[in-house]
């Protein structure tokens, strides 16, 4: 249906160096370029590995169509929180990004949309002021230009190193999602592994359409915390995408290889009315 994926939109990035990546599920080692070409799905066992924000965008958007927005908004350390400045530096090196979310405008099969992709390589995609601000701005600009929003979500939750500021980003982004929705625009959330805490309790669950990747961990409270607090044994598949589908909290689970097709289809279904 759609051709070979192009990974050359973002040049000279750390991820373009070839190294072997080990599958956490089966232990198979695959060269990173081959793995990337296989959409970070282990060729041996089919396990989904986490994708960086830029790989994610490359996977679904039309080549050359991406226009990044608010690229330079970055975190500061408003509370002088112990170890935060060092963690930010390490996260930048680790992910090759300035912040844990990449935002912009792009086309998917020729249809214009606003997109954001979070990156679990940047402090587990946690949301502090900068991530909240970038996503809020994206919804605001999409509202102004009447664009649908597609969000690729992965996050451990609100970033504790920014204290109350992080918690309040949940309300701030929710307000922007609401305004975008009130203006009649479409928001599709794609939940990927992991989506937890304050992100699940805000914009991850506010999509008109909520798609999840197979086996993605999606929940509010941490599984270990639940086990420790309640002493209950967690059922098999707890907080996985399939569990949420069964309990009625997501619209569908989509294969990564079909994601572009499905997103493009959804966009098309929202472009023409009777």
């Amino acid at each position: 249906m759609w051709g070979r994926i192009m990974f050359n939109l973002f040049k000279n990035d750390k991820e373009n160096k070839i190294e072997n990546i080990t599958c956490k599920k089966c232990g198979a080692e695959t060269p990173s370029d081959a793995l990337r070409e296989n959409l970070m799905i282990c060729p041996e066992c089919g396990a989904y590995m986490r994708m960086g924000a830029k790989d994610r965008l490359n996977m679904v958007i039309d080549k050359g169509s991406f226009k990044e927005l608010d690229k330079n908004i970055k975190s500061v350390d408003p509370l002088s929180f112990p170890g935060y400045a060092e963690k930010l530096d390490a996260a930048k090196k680790n992910s090759g990004l300035i912040e844990g979310v990449v935002c912009g405008e792009a086309k998917i099969d020729g249809i214009k949309c606003a997109v954001f992709a979070m990156d679990s390589g940047f402090m587990m995609g946690s949301m502090g002021s900068a991530v909240g601000e970038k996503i809020t701005r994206l919804f605001e600009s999409a509202t102004k230009s009447k664009l649908p929003v597609i969000g690729f979500i992965t996050s451990g939750g609100a970033r504790m190193q920014e204290g109350i500021y992080s918690l309040m980003q949940m309300a701030k982004v929710s307000g922007a999602v609401r305004r975008h929705a009130d203006a009649g625009n479409l928001y599709t959330a794609v939940l990927t592994d992991p989506t937890t805490g304050g992100i699940t309790a805000s914009f991850a669950m506010q999509g008109d359409i909520i798609i999840a990747e197979p086996n993605a961990l999606i929940g509010f409270a941490g599984a270990r915390v639940i086990e420790q607090t309640t002493g209950e044994k967690l059922p098999e598949g707890f907080q996985r995408a399939e569990f949420l589908l069964e309990h009625g909290f997501i619209d569908l689970i989509e294969d990564r290889r079909r994601l572009k097709y499905t997103l493009s289809n959804i966009l098309k279904l929202h472009t023409k009315g009777w």
């Binding site: 929710s174 699940t200 309790a201 805000s202 914009f203 991850a204 669950m205 506010q206 999606i218 929940g219 509010f220 409270a221 639940i226 607090t229 309640t230 209950e232 967690l234 059922p235 707890f238 907080q239 569990f243 309990h247 009625g248 909290f249």
Partner: peptide
């Protein structure tokens, strides 16, 4: 808790 997750604690807050 498990039941709260099953019934969408995150969704309810969101």
């Amino acid at each position: 808790g498990i039941d709260a997750e099953k019934r969408g604690q995150g969704e309810a807050i969101a």
